[in-house]
Design a binder for these strands. Structure first.
Lengths: 345, 345
DNA sequence: AATCAATTTCAAACCGCTTTGGACGCACCA
DNA sequence: TGGTGCGTCCAAAGCGGTTTGAAATTGATT
């Protein structure tokens, strides 16, 4: 069932039918009603391919997920982000096209998506320090929104980010207020922008209390359970082990907890831990009482908002780049407590 | 830069240029070379929208991810599956379009995707008992491949699945051989097909040794860390607690481990655990020596193969439905050991 | 009754590619 | 010499919508 056929059935021209369905004013309300009814009856849906060609719009957004080609780690945070973005697209009639791309091949993909006219805009995932992709996207004239920011980029661009610096500064201050002085940071890879900001917040809080950071208490790794475990083991084996940890996400946080409990230490009394909680649906941080004290910000909500921002930019290309900074809330769970009396070992 | 323009620059007709680029024989090799060179020079890429309209093919595959509308849990296993499928699509010039859909609205989405001509085929995720989607897809004539199977469906259909029954049967037998008799099963939700099969395998192994299953040792929950923890807590608090556990995935397995270690029990000596390991990139099961003894099957590889199967079906619609059953390997880690001597409590 | 503007409808061009059904030139053969 | 077949290339008709510019209809005004 296509437009022409529907028009024939109605004894109208395709033009009129098209206008009736798309809400143009130059068609009487009575015929519009007739057309709508007929369309519903034959459950007619305009062919997406034809619309796209005729209007020149792809009605689709590209999400390009970089995969570190060496390790092939897929960041599962994307799953919830995309679930959020998908809700927005569904409401607006956009499709979401997903490319998983080795990070040494991203340029080609962006160029391709543009030249082929496959998508109207792009969500940039996993921005890095001085990320070259933003320059590239500006050059080819693609509307885009960055999930996160790219330290080092000077030209303005649209982004949506969590206030990572402030979140980690507050978390560190919270631990300092509890009396902790040896606070470890289990961070993501340092070329990732979010990791840089989190470290900055951590260092700021330490500096404000006149505490010199100890490189032995700072690790930067891929965010897997195993890496969190390993890093924690190394630090807990230190001759002056930390009394508290900050972890970049729930996943290394689980490894961290394993390392702690394996040593017979109790979370929240012997060792304090604060994680960043992206509110992943499959890794809930407890329900009533959070397990981990955490800086929390829903990545799914971020997905929703980033998608809205991008659609807005596509609809109003003349507007200046948009930015939105989400604040993480510090939620108190069972994994933090006052620094214990020094152990006599 | 489009076909017409490129043709004009070359002094050829659009027809010839199109044929040259698409490898048709009715064009001399010399002009083909000329055309190819010019196309590369102006980095011409045919407009996807136009190709799609002209050929009637969408050159895109739809992945419809159902979200339980009540809980909004996004199964993170999809992330790695899709990463695998994406590799296949990238090689074949297909796009991957992703819809995250509340499970009470799936019908509409499938109908829509078809009527709009947005995709050429569908990967069905998370099949359930008597899943009505397969009937629907057959009715509307959509090529599809199911990741998993749908017990209760009688008409043949294409699927790719892990041999869940055999995997869990072997795992259970392995525990039985170690002397365990009280073996608990922490399963996924029971309307999910994979959960049914795993339970079947588990029950078969018990029955073969003449052991009656204990309903108190079988739980069916969403596969989150917290649910795994809760289920394990309840079972370990039982007056005849299990000496071994089977967990449906790494994620509830982590919660299970937490419950065990929280009680001062040691994994692999006091309590044995076998999980199903989907080989998720962000939750590696150790590296040299696996942490968990596990039934392992890479879901990423499953994604690759399912995608290939679907592309093949689309290319050869006349063929009979295809099936592929992947065997999980049983890998021995540090989480299993002989049943401990009964505790005198 | 003729004029005019507003309302409603339509024919045709267009989006950028594929594909059908020739056209053209040339060598080959009878 | 004229037909046949082959190798190259092209004009034009789709694909299924949107959109422009004009025509037909209607009602009000003069």
């Amino acid at each position: 069932m296509n437009l022409k056929e529907l028009a024939r059935k109605l004894g109208l021209s395709p033009t009129t039918v098209s206008r009736a369905l798309n809400g143009y004013p130059e068609v009487s309300e009575s015929t519009r009603a007739r057309v709508m009814a007929a369309a519903a009856r034959h459950n007619y849906r305009p062919n997406t391919r034809a619309i796209r060609l005729a209007t020149g719009r792809a009605m689709a957004i590209g999400h390009v997920i970089p995969i570190a080609s060496r390790h092939e780690i897929m960041n599962p945070v994307f799953a919830d982000f995309i679930a959020g973005a998908g809700e927005t697209y569904a409401r607006s009639g956009y499709d979401l096209i997903l490319s998983i791309v080795p990070d040494d091949d991203e340029d080609r993909i962006y160029r391709d998506l543009h030249a082929r006219g496959a998508v109207d805009g792009i969500i940039v995932h996993g921005p890095r320090l001085n990320d070259p992709r933003l320059r590239l996207l500006d050059d080819i004239g693609f509307p885009y929104v960055v999930h996160g920011r790219a330290t080092g980029t000077v030209t303005p661009y649209s982004w949506l980010d969590v206030n990572n610096r402030r979140a980690f500064r507050r978390a560190t201050e919270f631990l300092l207020d509890l009396g902790h002085r040896r606070i470890a940071l289990i961070n993501g890879l340092e070329f990732m922008d979010f990791a840089i900001r989190r470290r900055t917040g951590y260092l700021e809080a330490l500096a404000a209390r006149g505490i010199a950071p100890d490189p032995d208490l700072m690790s930067s790794e891929e965010m897997t359970e195993l890496r969190g475990y390993r890093a924690a083991c190394a630090m807990l084996g230190h001759d002056r082990p930390p009394t508290a940890f900050l972890a970049s996400s729930m996943i290394p946080g689980l490894g961290l907890r394993r390392a702690i409990e394996e040593r017979g230490l109790r979370l929240g009394t012997d060792i304090s831990v604060i994680i960043h909680d992206d509110a992943l649906s499959y890794l809930p941080n407890g329900d009533d009482v959070p397990i981990f004290t955490a800086t929390r910000s829903s990545v799914r909500e971020a997905g929703r908002q980033a998608a809205e921002m991008l659609l807005d930019i596509i609809a109003h290309p003349a507007c200046a780049p948009q930015q939105r900074l989400l604040e993480a809330e510090l939620i108190i769970g069972q994994s933090t407590g006052p620094v214990p009396a020094p152990r006599r070992s």
